[in-house]
């Protein structure tokens, strides 16, 4: 039995105002896969992600993480298994210093102070933020905040890493650093993003959501080469797969 399998079956979510954000979504993500969930604004990506660690309760259908059904009783275990990196790092970094923030999860898991110290140092080094450990989060730049937010989740040794728009608002250099960092992870990885070039680099499989249902699910290149599907789902090819605008205009 693997802890790294995510199985979503006929998931449905209707918000209290009657909006059906997810109508029927099913997929299985297996150990070590890196999957991009893409779709237009309002397609249901963020709602779907919030179900994966029980932040939202499904209206219908079920979710299994490593063959364990997601219920109230299994929530604490599942939250340790599924590490969730939020879109806005200001929501994730709530403690007074970077060290305290990264230590928050391990302390809740009952690690001893010495273990916490070791774990925090290790993950901060891993994300290249060792020098920031005593700084308060409001003194950090956007890229630094994002890396520390990832460290706060990694410090709990999750088996599955879920990230909502990881490259959002980063400058090209910070984005490149982040992509490199995420490529090295051996976890099962699930991303949502509008940065399709990042998806192309990091994911071997893509799930396309459209109006609350799975419109396509397959190998990344196959999906990004399907122009008809992309335009129907209000998407475009990643820039790196489009012709060079300078060269093509020169040919004309």
């Amino acid at each position: 039995m693997s802890h790294h399998i995510v199985e979503v079956k006929n998931l449905q979510h209707i918000y209290s105002d009657g909006t059906a954000a997810i109508k029927d979504v099913s997929f299985i993500i297996t150990h070590g896969e890196s999957v991009g969930i893409i779709g237009a604004n309002g397609a249901g990506k963020s709602t779907l992600l919030q179900h994966l660690n029980g932040s939202l309760e499904p209206t219908g259908g079920s979710i299994h993480i490593g063959h364990t059904p997601l219920t109230k009783g299994t929530l604490p275990d599942i939250r340790r298994t599924v590490g969730m990196v939020f879109q806005d790092p200001d929501d994730q970094l709530f403690m007074p210093t970077v060290f305290d923030d990264v230590a928050f999860g391990p302390l809740n898991l009952g690690y001893t102070p010495a273990d916490v110290e070791e774990r925090v140092t290790e993950v901060l080094e891993l994300v290249g933020a060792g020098h920031l450990r005593d700084k308060p989060p409001y003194h950090l730049s956007g890229g630094e905040k994002k890396r520390v937010a990832i460290a706060t989740v990694l410090s709990m040794s999750p088996d599955i890493l879920v990230m909502d728009e990881p490259t959002n608002g980063l400058d090209p250099f910070a984005r490149r650093q982040l992509i490199k960092l995420m490529r090295d992870f051996k976890h099962t990885r699930i991303f949502t993003s509008h940065d399709l070039d990042m998806v192309l680099e990091l994911c071997n499989r893509v799930i396309v959501l459209h109006e609350g249902v799975v419109r396509a699910d397959g190998p990344t290149l196959e999906i990004f080469n399907n122009d008809k599907l992309l335009s129907e789902c209000r998407l475009e090819k990643p820039f790196s797969m489009q012709g060079c605008p300078v060269c093509s205009s020169a040919i004309k």
Partner: peptide, 16 residues
């Protein structure tokens, strides 16, 4: 939500 996702159960642990 971010706190719950990191195992918060209502108690703050002193780290240092």
């Amino acid at each position: 939500m971010a706190m719950l996702a990191r195992g918060f159960t209502g108690e703050f642990h002193a780290s240092r």
